Simulated assay, not measured.
Amino acid sequence: MSMVRTAVPLILVSGLLSGCAGLVESDWPTCAAVGGVGGAALGAIESSSWAAAGLGVGAITGAAYCWVHGDADGDGVVNKLDKCPGTPKGTKVDADGCPVPEEAAPAPVAEAAEPVRVELDVKFDFDKAVVKEESQADIKALADFMSQYPQTTATVEGHTDAVGTDAYNQSLSEKRAGAVRDVLVNQYGVGGERLNSVGYGESRPVADNATEEGRAINRRVEAEVEARP
């Protein structure tokens, strides 16, 4: 009978204390109180004079159990194994209860800006590479744009009609592109390092080379503008 009377409160206290495992620090008083009540019950089994002593011993035992088996900072690692107590709530931790270093997010990759094609109204007389006066306004507009946006560069592209040999037209287209580039640099102050020139000969017509009107349109210079990285 004495064994039964002792075992029942002991099992009760053991079960309640086991339930304290995982409690956060704010729950320790409750855990200690549970231990105290259980201790008092065990003491009372022996005699009423042992009840008070059992209360004190049980309270201390309960609090100690909570410290060893509880989780003060609520990170999922019990106190006796937690090498980094006081971790802020919600912090990702390792098996030792220490914060796991966050991997640096990869730097965003800047997308290259799409080149902007500028339709210059720069036309040339047949078999000529001289920039005409009526083309100056368009060239100046390009120069003003590049001055406003100093991070830009431009490629000046020369073209011809289909009259003549491929080799001759290739050379003529390069001269036309170079002539417009010279105007941009020498008359309007665009830095030469920001300008390239290229000729495409007769390979990129925009009108019908079978007519005089079409050939006149094909004798042209265009420009492609893009931002430098």
Rank of each mutant, 00 (worst) to 15 (best):
V156S: 08
S2T: 04
G58N: 00
R194K: 15
A143M: 03
A141W: 06
A104L: 12
E119S: 14
S173V: 02
R228Q: 12
A112D: 09
E46Y: 14
V34G: 13
S48E: 14
A143L: 08
Y65D: 12
V225Q: 04
W67R: 09
D161V: 05
I217K: 12
S14E: 03
F126I: 01
N218Q: 04
Q170K: 11
D96R: 07
W67T: 03
L10Y: 08
Y149P: 04
A105K: 14
P29F: 11
A107N: 04
C31N: 11
D94Q: 07
A112N: 06
T165S: 15
C31S: 10
M1G: 13
P99F: 08
N196W: 00
P101G: 03
E102V: 02
Q187N: 15
V24H: 02
K132T: 12
F124L: 05
L17R: 08
V163F: 05
N186G: 13
G58K: 04
A64P: 00
G38Q: 05
K140C: 04
G191I: 00
A107C: 03
G38E: 09
G36A: 15
G43L: 01
A112V: 04
A210R: 12
V185E: 14
P150E: 09
E25K: 07
L81H: 14
G189M: 10
S2G: 11
V8M: 13
V163R: 02
V13H: 01
A7E: 02
L10N: 03
V131A: 06
P115N: 08
R176E: 06
P101D: 03
L172C: 00
R204Y: 07
E212S: 12
A44N: 06
A72T: 14
L23H: 04
